[in-house]
Amino acid sequence: MLNRRRCFAVAAFLLAAGPRDGWAQAIEKASAFVRQTGDKLTAIVNGGQGAAEKRRALTQILEVAVDLDGVGRFCLGRFWRTATPDQQKRYLAAFHEVLVTNISSKLGEYRGVTVTVQRGRAQEEDAIVTTVVERPNNPPTTVEWVIGQPASAPRIVDVLAEGTSLRLTQRQDYAAFLSRNNNDIDALIAAMKAQTAGGK
């Protein structure tokens, strides 16, 4: 009887405390990950290299720190399943290029950026880490980083600024483009490629 009760107590403890402790650690890990990534990015952004050099360095970091394939799949939404394997491959390649170009062109204009990690919290399966990004002559902005798989392999899956989600906006942009182009995924890939070709 006592044994059973002890078992129950242990189980209850594990249920109540176990996941919470796990989460605390996961959030800790996610915060550290954001701090490291932020440091790496700001070092390059504030550094003295040329634009091409910066872009290459930023690409390297983003390819590792961002779950580009996962975000890409999310952005294609329901069309991911209707796409052929070949289309999926070409789409993801174009998506990598688009995202990295957009981010590095945006960051490339910045100087004297500081990123301060404030706190982390759990949201469903992800961890959200809040940072304050400061630039000279600009009011500080709060940017939230959504980190997927925070406990095992933390990677950025979304960025939230002023209540708007980067990947959700991108997904709705693509959905609108597709609905105006007969749901033609090849047209979308072509438009994405044209964008990065013109943006360089």
Binding site: V98, N102, E162, G163, T164, S165, L168, T169, Q172, D173, Y174, A175, A176, F177, R180, L188, A191, M192, Q195, G199
Partner: peptide, 24 residues
């Protein structure tokens, strides 16, 4: 510069921003 369909992007951003204001 970055949106394929700027109208849809503004629509999405506007709605998210309004929802964010309510939530905060």
């Amino acid at each position: 510069k970055t949106a394929l369909d700027p109208y849809a992007t503004f629509r999405s951003l506007y709605r998210q921003n309004r929802k964010g204001k309510l939530e905060s």
